[in-house]
Design a protein around this nucleic acid. Sequence first.
DNA 1: AAAATGAACGAACGATCGTACAATTATCTA
DNA 2: TAGATAATTGTACGATCGTTCGTTCATTTT
Lengths: 206, 206
Amino acid sequence: MRVSTDGRLLKGEQTRNAILSRAADIASAEGLEGLSIGRLATELGISKSGVFTHFGSKEELQLATVRKAVELYREHVIEPALAVPQGLGRVRVLLDAWQRYQREPVFPGGCFFHSTMAEFDARPGRVRDAIASSQRDWRDFMERCLREARDRGEIDASADVPQLAFELDAVCRTGSAHALLHDDPTLYDRAARAMSTRLAAVTTSG
Amino acid sequence: MRVSTDGRLLKGEQTRNAILSRAADIASAEGLEGLSIGRLATELGISKSGVFTHFGSKEELQLATVRKAVELYREHVIEPALAVPQGLGRVRVLLDAWQRYQREPVFPGGCFFHSTMAEFDARPGRVRDAIASSQRDWRDFMERCLREARDRGEIDASADVPQLAFELDAVCRTGSAHALLHDDPTLYDRAARAMSTRLAAVTTSG
DNA sequence: AAAATGAACGAACGATCGTACAATTATCTA
DNA sequence: TAGATAATTGTACGATCGTTCGTTCATTTT
């Protein structure tokens, strides 16, 4: 984290950050295309050109917003897991942090990545690539945690880690999506139950 | 299906249908907000007002598009299941038809409902209500098929049907979403594997 | 003190959005 | 054949979109 002594650059960076925070919130609810520069300007009380010049193009704003969301995701989901020792304990912390991230209004419109992934699925370009890459990173991290637990003998040696990671991912994100759509928080619980029984099925009964 | 003898009404209905087919295709890839009346007009070679007057407002166009998508979904997923006898066989046909629907380009931008559900999760209004209702219908139908199989003793009496339906739904839709995002069809297979093992776990070994 | 830098602004651009309304065309009814 | 009906069109509206450009102002460097 380079800290500039130049007050101008400092001021610039902090408004840029304010823009991106708001942008991530909006995009989680209205999508990265629904994100508009004019709206950001109005809501933040700055001029349209003031917002624009920070990014140079809408696509660049979208990419920066994805990076900001990744940062928030890391902070709320990844870091709590990294703070505890490897193994099944870390897996549990990871899944807990993940569910908390879904429930708490980290993003007001539900998981940023669920929304934008569905939006950019079929829309080639740099934004899609960035989202896809973030999803690969997430999957890799999840698999790594599971593998660490397996290497410790806390998860069955025969367990198919990628498959397990995929299934845990599926139920958690789908549960959150349904909870939001139907405004029914018990659907989070349904996802939680699916995750814990799925995990219990592969943990060694030591 | 009321068939009119009036050639004018007939012509109107068939252009309306052409509009909705294209609208469903576009919305599956770009979302229901990305759908624009001007674009529809251009692509279909009719005037903007020609498109507009069929619906009267954009929201009404979106609602009609959702209904059209439901119709297509019924045709490709529900009807094949209804064509076979109740029980585990119907469940298998349903899941097969569903996966085929995901893979085949019924919608060019992936499952219409996955895209629009993520888009409208956090956006109150009639469109969201329509989407939510369609999802409830789908869930209910799935649970009904599973219950039929359970009542026949082909699925464990102790099986939690809503939970099972939720998990099958989760892996299938998530698999398709990832397959599209990463342009990797093997992810459909991963979902298929998850579904069949999940189903195998509750089928009575008779 | 002078020059350079960088953030933020205001005004305007062409394009597209959804919407409104009167006019036109083709078809059916009486 | 005259008149009603319904689909479709053309034109125009105000709003908003992303973007460009020249300017203003505060801060930093020389």
